[in-house]
Simulated assay, not measured.
Amino acid sequence: RIPHIIHQVWDTRDIPHFFHAWVSRWMDVNPGWGYWLWTIDDAKLLIGSQYPEYLALFESYPEVIHRADAMRYFILHHFGGVYMDLDMEPLKPLDNWTSNYDVVLSQECYEHTYVVRGESEPNIVNGVMFARPQHPFFLSAVKSLPDAANKYFGDFLQATGPVFLSRVLKEYLNTTHDPSVTIVP
């Protein structure tokens, strides 16, 4: 269901040296999988060709982190696969997750949610996400970006990051009751 592609993003192709071992390890642990490193310029090409109505918004984000967050939703909607932040270290193959699910999202760790931000419910982390191509949840995330930018433009957590994704998920599930979205702790 979920294509065997690992997507990662960085603002340029020149990723910091300390990430190289983890990137290599992803491929060692998941042989036969594709690996796509996306840059901001790559995302502009994808958005410009497939989602042109969102390109001006993407280019207007005030910080790279906004674009790095937003581009994940376009990538997963269009291509599907697995998005992993560069600072994630692989421990096991991902194959089991890709054959039985349409979308897999995970909750942020306890410390981020409850201690650092004082939230009462766990957020969905956007640093690890699995999806089949064209899943409506990620289209919902893409379509929610303009409204979030209008309300929370300078706050990346609210405009494009984990708080945004959590809000989109809650609205999506309240509207659709879609059982194909799996949330893991």
Results as ranks from 00 to 15, higher is better:
E63M: 07
Y101L: 08
L37A: 06
V82D: 04
F137M: 02
P122K: 03
A141L: 07
F138H: 06
W38P: 06
R117A: 09
V29H: 04
C109I: 13
P31H: 03
V125M: 05
E108D: 05
D102H: 12
E63P: 03
T98N: 05
H17F: 12
T98M: 10
T39M: 02
L57C: 07
L139T: 07
W36K: 10
K92I: 14
E89Q: 09
R117S: 08
L94I: 15
M129C: 11
D102N: 07
V116F: 04
E59P: 03
I75T: 14
L57F: 04
R132C: 15
A141F: 00
P52A: 03
N123W: 13
L105N: 02
T98G: 02
A21W: 02
G34D: 14
D28H: 15
D95E: 11
V23C: 14
M71I: 11
A56G: 00
G127C: 11
H17I: 09
E59D: 13
W26L: 11
D87W: 15
W36C: 12
I47E: 00
H20I: 15
D42N: 12
S140C: 12
Q134S: 11
E119D: 14
H66K: 12
S49W: 07
F137D: 02
Y101W: 07
E53T: 12
W97C: 01
Y101A: 10
I40C: 09
S106T: 06
H66W: 15
M84G: 00
F130Y: 09
V82G: 02
F79P: 01
D42K: 07
D87Y: 14
T98L: 08
A56L: 02
F130H: 03
L94P: 12
H17V: 10
M129Q: 13
G32C: 12
D87S: 14
I47G: 02
Y101P: 00
P133G: 07
G127N: 11
P133Y: 11
P122C: 03
D69N: 15
L55G: 05
A131W: 01
I75L: 04
P62Y: 11
V29S: 01
I40T: 15
G48R: 03
L45R: 06
K44G: 10
L105A: 09
L91C: 07
D95K: 05
P31I: 04
R117M: 13
E63L: 08
R67D: 05
P136E: 09
A56V: 00
L55H: 01
